[in-house]
């Protein structure tokens, strides 16, 4: 039996975390290919619906990652995102989604090393957690 290969959907903001991902690339840092990055202009535009869709379609985890507090290009989008993630964390665990499957991090534009580290750790954690049950269900 081959090792479980998780699929992780990451909504990353254009100004900080995506730039950090770029930096990780140009710095030739390596991280697992399990993470699919979706660039958004700001984490403040991530509707809870996007997260729900990803998890119901079978993503094993969703990461939302933006600028550190105070660094948001749009002043406070990251604080708004934090409230939405808080809301989803109240809703999802009651339906059997492990809280670890939804994560929020702040990764600044110059944190290429941190970006690669977070991706490595996240993939390792989700690998240990096992596949998302929704993947195996008929539900969408």
């Amino acid at each position: 039996m081959s090792e479980f290969d998780p699929v992780i959907i990451a909504f990353v903001c254009n100004w900080c975390t995506y730039t950090a991902a770029d930096l990780a690339g140009t710095s030739r840092l390596t991280y697992p290919p399990n993470v699919r990055l979706i660039r958004v202009m700001c984490t403040g535009m991530v509707d809870p619906q996007y997260v729900l869709k990803a998890l119901l379609e079978g993503a094993d985890a969703v990461l939302v990652s933006g600028c550190h507090p105070g660094d948001c290009h749009y002043i406070n989008g990251n604080f708004k995102a934090r409230r939405r993630i808080k809301l989803l964390k109240e809703i999802l665990p009651r339906f059997g989604f492990d809280p670890q499957r939804l994560r929020l991090t702040w990764i600044g534009a110059s944190d290429g090393v941190q970006f690669a580290g977070v991706m490595n750790d996240l993939v390792a954690q989700i690998r240990q957690l096992g596949p998302n049950q929704a993947k195996l269900q008929m539900v969408i």
Binding site: P69, F79, R82, T105, V118
Partner: peptide
Amino acid sequence: EFREDEFSEIVGI
């Protein structure tokens, strides 16, 4: 709305 100092427990991995 939001506060700057809230829900810090949900940030990080």
